[in-house]
Structures are given as C-alpha cells and as structure tokens.
C-alpha cells in the first residue's frame, strides 16, 4: 500500500518537474512575450498541478490534502490573472518582443 503511494508520488512529482523544466526552457527560448507567457503558465498550471497530485498520497489527513489543492487553485488563479494582464499590456503597447 505504502509502495503504491510512493510510486504515485514519484511519478507525479517527476511529471511536474518535467513541466517546470519545459516551461523554463520555453521562457528562455521562445521568441516573443505571448509565447513566453504560454510557456510560463504551463509550468505553473500543469507543473504545480502534477507536483500537488504527487504529494496528495503523502498528506497525512484530509485537511492537509485540501490545503495542498487550495495552494494549487490559488496559484492557478494568480497565474491566469497575471498572464491576462501582461498580455493586455503587450497588445495595448503594440510591441511583441
């Protein structure tokens, strides 16, 4: 039972780490602001999501699990809002560097 939980954790956190890595590479390599935003939000949304999913089997109680999920939800909300605001600024200023 404990082995199954550990396998889930290793798999989830590894997939999450992969998305963070991919998002960082995208942030450094993509040509303009909008595509960089796309890379960045993938790291936050999917990367953190998989890390949380991987950590859920390790949380001792329902309360800790809910705390982990709400951290992910808040990060989703913040990431979505900030990228919308940055994208709007880019569109208004007319320069997509």
């Amino acid at each position: 039972m404990s082995v199954a939980r550990d396998i889930m954790t290793i798999a989830g956190v590894s997939v999450g780490a992969f998305f963070f890595l991919a998002g960082t590479v995208g942030l450094l390599r993509f040509p303009d602001t909008l595509t960089r935003l796309h890379a960045l939000t993938k790291a936050d949304n999917l990367g953190l999501g998989f890390v949380v999913l991987g950590l859920l089997p390790q949380s001792g109680s329902l309360r800790d699990g809910l705390k982990l999920i709400s951290i992910w939800m808040l990060a989703l909300l913040a990431g979505a809002t900030v990228s919308q605001l940055i994208a709007r600024m880019v569109r208004q200023s007319g320069t997509t560097r």
């Binding site: 979505a80 809002t81 605001l85 709007r88």
Partner: peptide, 10 residues
Amino acid sequence: GVLAFLARLL
C-alpha cells in the same frame, strides 16, 4: 476586467 474580477474573488 480581469483585475477587478480577481479583486472580488480573492
């Protein structure tokens, strides 16, 4: 806008 939405939700 999205900022006003966040300021109501958060």
